[in-house]
Amino acid sequence: MVTAREEILERLERARPPAAARPAAMPEPSMPIDPMATLRDRLQDAGGSLQFATRSGWTEQIQWPVEATTLRHVYSSLNAMPGRGVGLSSKTNHDLADLDVCVLAAEFVVIENAAAWQRPGCLRERAAALLATHLIVVANATEIVATMHQAYARIAPSDASFGWFLCGPSKTADIEQSLVLGAHGPRTMSLILLSD
């Protein structure tokens, strides 16, 4: 019996259009004159906020979405901000539903759309980033690229089993086109850029 796989490949072979070459790469767009202004605008469009801080002591410098001392459940992948509450003690990812904040380290940020490239270290980290009420993404201010073209030049095709671009809090406009922040995931998102 012919398998579905063989039959589909055979159908595609029969219907194959005449050869068309793959296009040459596009010229790479350049960095805007004021990258940080573009980044701030794009992140604002997406419902997020941009903050700057220094590497040492950024946890005291930034404005937290809620009073930092009231945060009971924190998941963090950064040493500067130790995790606490269910983020540390729970056995299943489902307990992370109570998380107040998730703090993640991004590898770089794309200026044209304010997307931060992040690879969760484990499935738990991915769940935390989605279940927490507030998301904080931290990156080095020097790790920026102009557009998605330069972004993919930095991501090796064989990198990791999962990676994502994150931009702003989860959102929806499915009810009469009204933008609502906090659809299923975080209600707020802050991008923190660190410098020395």
């Binding site: 794009r42 469009d45 997406a46 794309v110 044209e112 759309n113 304010a114 997307a115 484990c122 499935l123 998605m148 990791a160 089993s161 999962f162 990676g163 994502w164 671009f165 994150l166 931009c167 702003g168 809090p169 989860s170 959102k171 406009a173 995931g185």
Partner: peptide, 20 residues
């Protein structure tokens, strides 16, 4: 689609999480 520069989540999957 919506006039956004990018969606909130752009997720790249490549196989199940190792050792899970």
């Amino acid at each position: 689609a919506t006039g956004q520069a990018i969606t909130t989540y752009t997720s790249h999957f490549r196989g199940p999480r190792p050792r899970s």
